[in-house]
């Protein structure tokens, strides 16, 4: 058993999308420092259930930092602000007894609150739907090693592809922009020879879809990069800007 913490939690409670929410304060004692942040919320929810209250709704699934389900603003920082850490991988040893922890959902007009800390991120799926793919049908692929990919481009594609779609970038951006998310997919696919054929239409359509969904604009503050649990770089945004400009002026996209 590890050390124990006594905490005060201020959690955003909201019944559904249409209702207005508010912060509710809970005291939680005896939290093990080895517990993860979500496990701490589990403990709270068990307590709430048995006392006849409704547990706090929060999204989660794999709890190992890869599915991208979890996320909330913890003390004003997306995922709690630890470097490259999702909320499920944030551990209570980063807090101390007596701390007041403020927990608020990710906020953006494009990501409306569903309940408590759960937000609707289907806008991100719609951005992918608008062009985040390579149009190859099952069965029509050539032999894999016929497509050679330069190692630096393969590495760039891999780094961009690490995005888990958690929306922390949107949450952390002062303008609720989805540029980091969108650029990660644009650069992942556009860096590869098999994805370059559609790269121009892809970047145009995906950028357009961002706006349709009501995301804000990039103001180059790079808070998205700081909040990203997978270390996606804003150089992807620069690359997307460049490709967008080239695509709109019918120039070939640079590498």
């Amino acid at each position: 058993m590890g050390k124990r913490l006594d905490l005060t939690l201020r959690i955003w409670r909201q019944k559904n999308t249409n209702s207005s929410g508010e912060f509710v304060t809970y005291d939680l004692e005896n939290v093990d420092v080895n517990a993860s942040f979500l496990e701490m919320l589990d403990v709270l929810n068990e307590k709430l259930t048995l006392s006849g209250d409704e547990p706090v709704a929060f999204e989660h699934d794999c709890r190992e930092g890869i599915c991208g389900s979890c996320g909330a603003m913890v003390n004003g920082k997306a995922h709690g602000g630890e470097d490259k850490t999702t909320l499920c991988q944030l551990h209570m040893r980063h807090f101390k007894s007596g701390d007041v922890i403020v927990i608020e959902p990710f906020r953006a007009k494009a990501l409306p609150v569903v309940k408590d800390l759960v937000v609707d991120r289907s806008a991100l799926d719609r951005i992918i739907e608008s062009g985040g793919y390579i149009s190859v049908k099952t069965g029509s692929a050539p032999e894999a090693n016929q497509i050679l990919v330069k190692k630096d481009l393969a590495d760039r594609a891999m780094d961009a592809a690490s995005c888990i779609g958690c929306s922390a970038c949107v949450a952390a951006c002062p303008n609720a922009s989805a540029m980091l998310f969108t650029s990660a997919k644009v650069v992942h696919l556009g860096s590869l020879p098999q994805g370059s054929t559609e790269a121009a239409s892809r970047v145009i359509n995906m950028v357009d879809e961002m706006k349709t969904n009501g995301f804000g604009n990039c103001s180059n503050e790079y808070l998205c990069e700081a909040a990203c649990p997978k270390g996606i770089k804003v150089s992807n945004i620069a690359k997307m800007n460049q490709w967008y400009k080239q695509a709109m002026t019918n120039q070939p996209l640079s590498e």
């Binding site: 201020r10 955003w12 912060f23 603003m73 003390n75 004003g76 920082k77 602000g81 403020v102 608020e104 906020r107 953006a108 007009k109 494009a110 409306p112 609150v113 002062p174 303008n175 609720a176 922009s177 009501g214 995301f215 804000g216 604009n217 103001s219 180059n220 503050e221 808070l223 700081a226």
Partner: peptide, 26 residues
């Protein structure tokens, strides 16, 4: 652009920590 940005947040944060935001940018 700024008007779009203002609209994009929807409900404002109550607790957001922008301490790592550069002053010039802000």
């Amino acid at each position: 652009l700024v008007r779009q940005n203002r609209k994009a947040r929807g409900q404002q944060y109550k607790s957001v920590d922008y301490s790592n935001r550069s002053i010039a940018t802000r």
